[in-house]
Amino acid sequence: MSCRNCSGEPQVLCSSGQLFLQPLWDSLRTREALLLSPFFPVLFSISTYVGFCLPFVLLDVLGPRAPALRRYKIHPDFSPSARQLLPCLGQTLYQHVAFVLPVTLLHWACSPAQLPREAPELPQLVHHLVACLLLFDAEFFAWHVLHHRVPWLYRTFHKVHHQNASSFALATQYMSVWELLSLGFFDMVNVTLLGCHPLTVLTFHVVNIWLSVEDHSGYDFPWSTHRLVPFGWYGGVAHHDLHHSHFNCNFAPYFTHWDKILGTLRSSPGPAW
């Protein structure tokens, strides 16, 4: 089933599976100049990241004045200070401007993009989103294990991320340039290999940033992602906190199957609430 649609352009055909996402995609396409700008990926990444971090920063600020919040903290007696928060934010902004932006400009110059008129079908978007998350999880697991098992790699590239023993949201991207660019490379390769629609790419980046921030937030809420995914398939914030505490377990960023297969899974204790 198909229909003439949705962007006001009669030559565009939309299948019934596209109708759900087509209005959203048409709205985004009205900002095509912004979406195709070489500056958009950096602005989008920074704004999404900071936007997801801010609620947790506010919770950390309110924590000493709201004892009820402490029951949801993995480390109830820890709150990051301004001397910890500001360097993390500053390093994220600096690395995106000094390193991510030039790479983005180079990619934009070598591979000019165009936006398709049709939105992806919803099942296709979900399929590609899950595939991207699983691929990223496997790639980062291998990268992560390697950088912990090879002392030179750990000292040179990964140690900076472990400088904060107790995680907090803005420490998510407190990492070396090599690590930041490696994770960005995994993202770019996966969406390219799968041929993801630009709307799927945006959705994947939003979900990936949110999950990484939540994993480092230090808060284990009843509605946290790992409590919504059944059968212990997803590790979550307590799972990742154990990695920062013990270094030799829970290397996968999100899911638990690779750690189970290779014997590096360590279960987190239940919440105090």
Score class of each variant (00 low, 15 high):
46 I>W: 05
228 L>D: 01
37 S>Q: 06
124 Q>D: 10
33 A>P: 00
104 T>E: 14
156 T>K: 14
57 V>N: 01
228 L>A: 09
95 Q>I: 03
185 F>C: 12
146 L>Q: 04
91 Q>R: 14
140 F>A: 06
50 V>E: 10
5 N>V: 14
250 N>L: 12
51 G>N: 07
117 R>Q: 15
80 P>S: 10
120 P>V: 12
34 L>F: 02
96 H>G: 04
262 L>H: 11
158 H>F: 06
168 F>C: 09
235 G>K: 05
9 E>L: 10
164 N>G: 11
83 R>W: 05
147 H>Y: 13
144 H>K: 02
57 V>G: 09
109 A>E: 07
93 L>A: 08
227 R>M: 07
171 A>Q: 13
142 A>K: 00
138 A>K: 02
85 L>W: 00
114 Q>W: 07
218 G>M: 04
24 L>T: 14
113 A>H: 01
144 H>I: 06
184 G>M: 05
188 M>S: 14
42 V>P: 04
207 V>M: 09
264 T>I: 11
201 V>M: 09
265 L>E: 07
212 S>E: 09
145 V>M: 02
238 A>R: 15
51 G>K: 08
133 L>F: 03
244 H>G: 08
136 F>K: 02
3 C>A: 15
272 A>R: 15
59 L>N: 07
264 T>K: 04
13 L>W: 11
260 K>D: 04
90 G>N: 09
220 D>P: 00
137 D>R: 08
267 S>L: 15
165 A>Q: 12
200 T>S: 06
103 V>S: 08
10 P>Q: 12
237 V>C: 13
145 V>Q: 00
160 V>M: 12
184 G>S: 10
61 V>E: 07
261 I>D: 00
4 R>P: 09
137 D>N: 08
173 Q>I: 00
67 P>L: 13
259 D>T: 08
263 G>Y: 08
93 L>I: 12
219 Y>I: 06
243 H>Q: 08
59 L>A: 15
45 S>I: 04
64 P>M: 12
128 H>M: 11
26 D>T: 14
78 F>K: 11
23 P>F: 07
212 S>Q: 13
218 G>A: 08
106 L>Y: 12
87 P>D: 03
112 P>R: 13
51 G>M: 07
266 R>V: 05
18 Q>W: 01
225 T>S: 11
9 E>A: 12
47 S>Y: 13
2 S>P: 01
51 G>P: 03
29 R>M: 07
250 N>S: 10
235 G>C: 07
235 G>V: 09
119 A>C: 09
113 A>D: 05
81 S>R: 15
196 C>G: 07
168 F>W: 04
130 V>Y: 01
153 L>R: 06
3 C>P: 03
